[in-house]
Every structure is written in C-alpha cells, then in structure tokens.
Design a protein around this nucleic acid. Structure first.
Length: 466
RNA sequence: GUCCCCAUCGUCUAGAGGCCUAGGACACCAGCCUUUCACGUUGGUAACACGGGUUCGAAUCCCGUUGGGGACGCCA
C-alpha cells in the first residue's frame, strides 16, 4: 500500500510554526516511504476562512519546500459528499436525528458543569421517534456511538491509547442546516483521499476516538494515526504572538533561511543521535515516526538563529548577494552597480559573520554606498588626531600599492613593521574610516572590495572630517 | 470537574535494564586563535521531578504523587 499523508490547516490565519512542523513531518514521512503528501484546506468555517489566509499558507509551504504533491483539496467543495455519508449512516441505523436547539444544548452543558457532571449529550433522541419532534424544527444528525466497551487507537507516536465508550457522547455529524461538522468531514475526506497515515498535533488525540467510531460505523478501514506534541513558547504555554515570531512568513522577513527553519523544526521533537545540522535529503533518508518524542517542546529562538548562521555560511554567495541587495533596497539604501559588485566581492567574508539575512544586510550596508559611510560613535572615537595623521600617511603609502587582497595585506604588515606599530593600531582607525564601524570583515578584504578610488576617498574624508 | 497524553542540563535532545563517572547541540562563563567582529578551538557550570516497588542491577519496567499539556461546541 502506498503511503499517503496530508496536512490539513484551516485558513483562518497565517501558517504558524507549529503547523509548519506538522506539514514537515507529513512531508518527510511520505517521502521517506515513497508516498504522496497532500494538502487539504479545511475551510468549512465560512465565517472565519479567508482566501488571503489560503494564499499565505500556500506561500509559506512553498517557501519551506513543502508544497503538496497534488492540487489542494478544499473541504468546502465536498459538503454534499459529507452529507451523503451522514445520511448513509442515518439510513443504516448508525445515526439518528436529534431535535434540540443549540441553545438548549448550551443550557444542558452549563447545568452539567454547574452540577459537577461531565458536559456530555444525554442521548435523548437516540431512541425517540422523530414524529415526537416539535413541529418545524430542523434536526441535526448524531452518530449512534457504542455505549459499552472501549475504543482503542494504536498511535504511532503515543502508543496504544484507549478510552471507555461511556466517556464519549453521540456527536453531531451533520448540523441542522445540512453542513457537516469538522470531525465528520475530516473522516470522510481522509477516507476518500486514501489517506493512510494521519499525522497531526496531539490536540487532536482525543478527537481520534470519535473519528474512529465513524470509520467503524461506515465499515471503513481506519488509517494509522500519529499524534505529535505541540510546540510551546519559551514559558511552556501554548505558542502565541507574545512569544515572538510565530508565523512562517515572519521568519522569512526576519532573515531566516528556509533550510534553517526546516532543520530547526525537524530537530524540535525529533532526534537522530547527535546529528544537529540536517539537510532535506538527509532528513528524508532518516525520518521516521518512532524518533518523534512524546513531550511538548519549546520554541528556542537562539538555537534557530545559530542554525541559521550555519546554513547561511553554507549558502551560495550569489544567492546571498541577491537577498542582501533586495533587503538593502527595501530599506531605502541607494546604490549602483559598483556598490553591488563590492557586496559580491565581500560576501565570502560577510557571511562568516552573520546569522540572519537581516544581519548580513546590515553588515553589507557600508559597502554598497558610494562615498563615506555614516560613522558610528565608537568608530568616530577611534579617529583621534594622531590616528588621522597616521591615516594620511598610510593613504600616501597605499596609493602605490598593487590592489590585490594578498598584496594589500602584505603592504599593511610592512607598513606596521616599518613604523614599529602593531597591526591593530593602524587597522582599527582604517576600519573606522572605511566602514564607519569598529567591526567588519578583515581590513585587507574591505580595501580590496572597495577599490582604490573608493578606499582613498573614504580615508581622506575621514582625515579631513570632524 | 471528567477523560486523554506527557516528564533527562535553562532549552532541543541521546539513552530500548548493565556500554552512564548520564553523551551531543544552543545559551552562559573562562582560555586559545586574531587586524576588529565572527568562525574555529580547549575547558567549565548545568539534568534523570518525587516516593514506592520489580530486578543481582533501573534514567530505562510497574504503581502512586506532584507538575505540565490537551480534549470535552450544531469551531476547526
């Protein structure tokens, strides 16, 4: 049997990092077993679902390389089928019409809670004849769930989980307006889509029992289930906005690389020995459900950032140059082809020193400019009268230098030696003049990337300025 | 409240009864490298929630306690 998995978000908001991980696990499991990974948009809540959210979810998945293998299924398009199955169950005597109004049910629930009883439907219409119904009232269809015995699920992550059927009430599968409820629609869709493995957040674990009852009532084969723990914020509570970035697109904006987010999410709740840096290919080769932990894990932005740095250093220079220039342009930094070329020359050094694309763009900003860069206070402090005098002298010396990086380094060292100075003594003021900052790539690399003319301009500007 | 799930350093995890003096990674601290910053590197602080069993032997198995999470809708 070919493995088929699905990710089934509801389009009521952006795709958050927990959903992304669920998608990732579904993707990896399918790939690992040579199966298909599908997407189903659960948009049956028409009041809260938006096309904008659908688009965002699709964008987010694409960015992470988790686009589905087949066109997405929209649950709302399948309502007729959901109703059909509900009516089949009704005809087969596995479901019944229930005539309470939502208000009545709400009141029953409140009463039960007030009296310390579990808020379960009492099955009042289970054996009553519809002819007794109040006139003109539209019924909902409820599943006639078994009352004796227990329902057990062999979960691929959680192990065997069982519950007494007495704990479960007769759930509504079709609302009085003819629309399906979520629990029912999911079962029908998963069955019709040929889903073999339902991998989802463990907030659905207790729903699973009721869904199994629908499979059983229809005589359908149940899929295998795997309930993965949720991701929490740093304080252990359910991940939310106040914990920082949670939307996938937000991570993209903040300069995280998709392969780093992929890697981080993979390692959150799943491990393979001591391996930390794991590529997509490696993940597909290694991933399996038995490596998934059962405890909820917490989002750790510091580790994500570290991992991002690792992937940033591994990334192609050309790609990073492109990203950085785009980000600088978006910041309103003006630059020409010469500036872009300097970033290109400097990228091998710049990417060693950044952990996110935002940092990378920040560290490249000095290079794209034509003319002296804005001077940080700490850099300005380096440009003492003495330092300026030395820079003037150095500029003279450098004006004849062959403009290759290795030569430049040699010239600087020679200069320092001749003057009896430590290299740092001249490198720091030079760095300040060239970059406006106290930190930058190696100074010879900076000189080389800027080019003789630009470098001289900046040195002289610093010498004459302030 | 009822039901379900979970529990190893601050965090992510390795660990399938002896290989555990509990390993790795992030973070943190100190040193080295050095032209700044990073990278790298060396070392350090730091955990089996608690209590009972089972066993020659338990982080690993069982029970309980505590703590966390989730579910109990004509939401998804």
């Amino acid at each position: 049997m070919t493995v088929r998995t699905r990710f089934a978000p509801s389009p009521t908001g952006f795709l958050h990092i927990g959903g992304a991980r669920t998608a990732l696990f579904n993707y990896l499991f399918a790939r690992r077993h040579g199966g298909k990974y599908l997407l189903r948009i659960e948009d049956t809540d028409r009041a809260r679902s938006t096309p904008e959210a659908v688009r965002q979810i699709l964008d987010s998945l694409e960015w992470l390389g988790l686009s589905p293998d087949e066109p997405p299924v929209f649950q709302s398009a399948r309502e007729a089928r959901h109703a059909e199955v509900a009516h089949q169950l009704l005809a087969a005597g596995r479901a019944y019409l229930a005539f309470e109004t939502p208000e009545e049910l709400q009141a029953m629930r409140e009463r039960a809670i007030a009296e310390g009883r579990p808020p379960r439907y009492d099955g009042a219409w289970r054996d009553r004849d519809p002819s007794e119904a109040p006139p003109g009232r539209k019924p909902a269809i409820r599943l006639k769930a078994p009352r004796e015995g227990e329902t057990a699920v062999e979960d691929l992550v959680q192990g065997e989980v069982r519950v007494a059927n007495a704990e479960l009430d007769d759930m509504i599968i079709l609302r009085s307006d003819g629309t399906p409820t979520y629990l029912h629609a999911v079962v029908v869709d998963d069955h019709d889509m040929g889903i073999t493995h339902v991998i989802r957040g463990d907030d659905h674990l207790t729903n699973t029992f009721r869904q199994c009852q629908i499979y059983d009532a229809m005589g359908w084969t149940r899929p295998r289930f795997a309930h993965i723990p949720l991701i929490h914020g740093a304080d252990g509570a359910k991940l939310s906005k106040r914990h920082g970035a949670v939307s996938v697109l937000e991570f993209r904006e903040q300069g995280y690389l998709p392969e780093a987010v992929f890697n981080y999410l993979l390692r959150l709740g799943w491990g393979h020995g001591d391996e930390e840096v794991i590529s997509r290919e490696r993940a597909i080769a290694l991933f399996d459900l038995d490596g998934v932990g059962r405890a909820p894990s917490r989002m750790d932005y510091a580790k994500l950032t570290h991992l991002n740095g690792v992937w940033l250093r591994r990334a192609e220079d050309a790609r990073l140059v492109h990203e950085v220039l785009e980000r600088l342009a978006r910041r309103g930094v003006l630059f020409g082809p010469a500036g872009a070329e300097r970033v290109r020359l400097l990228m091998p050094e710049l990417k060693e020193r950044a952990r996110t694309l935002e940092e990378l763009a920040g560290s490249a900003a000095f290079a794209v400019l034509d003319g002296p860069p804005p001077m940080e206070a700490k850099a300005a402090a380096l440009l003492t009268p003495e330092a300026k005098a030395r820079l003037r002298d150095l500029a003279q010396f450098l004006s004849d230098a062959p403009w290759e990086r290795a030569d430049l380094e040699a010239w600087l060292r020679d200069y320092a030696e001749v003057k009896g100075l430590k290299l740092g003594t001249i490198a720091q003021p030079l760095r300040a003049a060239l970059t406006g900052s106290t930190t930058s790539p190696p100074i010879d690399a900076v000189l080389f990337a800027l080019g003789r003319t630009e470098a001289m301009d900046r040195i002289l500007a610093a010498v004459e300025g302030g």
